[in-house]
Design a protein around this nucleic acid. Sequence first.
RNA 1: GCGCCCGUAGCUCAACUGGAUAGAGCGUCGCCCUCCGAAGGCGAAGGUUGGGGGUUCGAAUCCCUUCGGGCGCGCCA
Length: 588
Amino acid sequence: MSNIFHAYKDKVGDILSKMAANGDIPQGLDMSRVTVEPPKDATHGDMATNAAMVLSKAAGKNPRQLGEALAGKLKELPEIREVTVAGPGFVNFRLADAEWASTLRTILSDGIYYGDSKMGKREKVVIEYVSANPTGPMHAGHVRGAVIGDTLANLLKKAGYDVTKEYYFNDAGNQIDVLTQTAYLRYREALGEDIGAIPEGLYPGEYMKDVAQAMVARDGKQWLGVAETAWAPAMRDFAVEYIMGMIRDDLDLIGIHHDVFSNERVMIEDGTLEKSFKTLHDKGLIYQGTLPPPKGKEMEGWEPVELTLFRSSNFGDSSDRPLKKRDGSWAYIMPDIAYHYNKLQRGFKWMINVLGKDHQGYEEKIRPAVAALAEGAKDIRLNVVYCGMVKLFKNGEPVKLSKRSGNIITLRELVEEVGAGSVRFFMMTRTPDSELDFDFTKVVEQSKDNPVFYVQYAHARCASVLRNAKEMFPDADLSPAALGKANLARISSADELQLVRFMAGWPRAVEAAAEAHEPHRVAFYLHDLASEFHGFWNKGRDDGTLRFLHENDRELSMARLALVSAVKTVIASGLAVMGVPPVEEMHG
RNA sequence: GCGCCCGUAGCUCAACUGGAUAGAGCGUCGCCCUCCGAAGGCGAAGGUUGGGGGUUCGAAUCCCUUCGGGCGCGCCA
């Protein structure tokens, strides 16, 4: 357990237990609200506990009094240097320098795994993201959800969960029929036929020509002049597989690799769909009925019709939902219900879906079904993380996108223009559900306006110091393991300790971000850490004694290099969660 | 009409999920390179957290209400 705040919370807990045993406070108080956190203002101390305020009422004491009692006990611990009671009853304390030296050694020995937590207790969680249907290459609009999902998955792994990254796609609905028709048209074109303009309603993208070319290469002319029932399945399967291949390649460009791909057709073919429907049916949750017209919304051509309905209103939904269309075929939601049933069957009790904000209606339909299928299990969790839309800008001007004219920006173009690392980082600079302005010009800019650059620059500076150190002390072993043995008592200035203190917060930041499902916090943490580092760096410019390297004081140099190496490590650890490779050197 | 999200500095956003004096970046103004990377840093100015009420030791955060914005609400995915 590397989270130092947990360690001190335990210490506070021990003291409170002893106080209870001594009769200083009542036995059996509810400790669940007691926290040990860094105070907002660092001048208050290294850590603060709210114990006195939270417990005062139940203990029948005033918070200041209780705080003083707690402070007295804390003072007896050798690892605590100073204790004060402040404000309404906060107990603030400072740690002995040796504690920070030990934190530094932990970072150096844990390396990129520093910040790993056992919080998740290996609990299984399936996180579904991207889930674009195979109708074309990934475009810019898919990227936000992809990056948020992947980073969240990485974050939950780091926090100790057993994470499965999953991609689900529909390969049996209307979209796929359109795809099949388009593919066949392009196939005929590839074999020399003049097809004219692509008709309205089909996919106009040039990539469909590639699909057709590949089909010709495989099957030649064999599908010309045969019945649609013959070519359609072949064309469909080929196109779906080809485009899924494109999508996988696109995802690979930004370092995203799913563990499991699930699809609608399999749900249908292996009977999962039928089984999930039957399960609902056997529970008496399916009936034939007619829904009232939707309120407050003009429905053109609405007419009452009897459909196969699911009693989702039993599970908190505002109305029941049709599972079959008028013609008796499945409504789109049914395969998705089956897919969630499949997740339950695989033993997942926790499911996270990362969706675009425009899919908000999806959740209220799927949640009741999951509740119904969960066999009354109380510990089934379904979380939906909504991602805001991305608006693209160039030189401050919005980039106009139009699917019809084929003017879309693909993920590949995005990555080729600004780089995978920048794309990933930049997408993480807002809370997931807020809209994001993505300005190409800014993202490639090499200045502090660009958070990606700012963080990378700090990492590069660390690397640079280590390179310079190698020249100054050619015989020195500058590996993290060796630097961990330096005399870290030499790390003693307020600015250095502040840096260590901030890094001690990384495990805590990981846990908080994982718990809140807010991967963007990793980006903010890294930006703040970079800021602390740049600040310290510049102090060395003004005050020579604060520089990292001192030719005539090898001991101090090694201690400071340990600090630099630790900063480099923590930045790398955070970038790893974000799927961004750290850079050793900047080139301009 | 109903449901979800949001409203914080001139702009774009944070705020460790209820903590202490609400913080960054941009923009504006001033300062710092003989010195490990100035692609940086330091400082100044800028706020009734949309308005009103409530809950409690304590509210940007929770509840109610009101105003303003975004999204979604049969058989499209």
